[in-house]
Amino acid sequence: MSNKIDLNSLPPQQLIEFRKNIDSEIQHFTQSLQALQTAQSKLKDCISTIDNVENSKQENLLVPLTSSLYIPGKILKRNEYLVDIGTGYYVEKSAKDSKVVYDKKIKKLDVDSKKLKDILIQKNELLNGINLILRRKVLEMEKEQEQQSGDTK
């Protein structure tokens, strides 16, 4: 890994370049993490909606035709849902089985989020390290310049 290189030995320009790379990586991973969390909350919505339907005695509901157009409808059969399992396939499932599908997906996303978070922590540590070294190098350079200008006087 590139981490094996002693960061202290790199010239400031390369360090800045390196920092830029890490910055964009961190941005990328943060975006992915957000996407995962949005997906997770959508799946949780599905589960709570199933619970709502199963728990309510109401038969009437409004069926959305578009995002702003509804028609009144009635629930004829409970405990029967069409679940999107991905790539355009839908399967008819009972309430319990539907929730199993969503639960599984949420767990999977949890595992991935955890991995992403670990990577983010690592990258942030690296970034802090680089910033420290850069700051020290700048201080050193300033000192040197001061000394030089002092010598010529």
Binding site: L82, G88, Y89, Y90, V91, E92
Partner: peptide, 12 residues
């Protein structure tokens, strides 16, 4: 026995 549908365009 599972009932499977495929989404083609806007039709299941």
């Amino acid at each position: 026995d599972s009932k499977i549908y495929k989404l083609i365009g806007s039709i299941l």
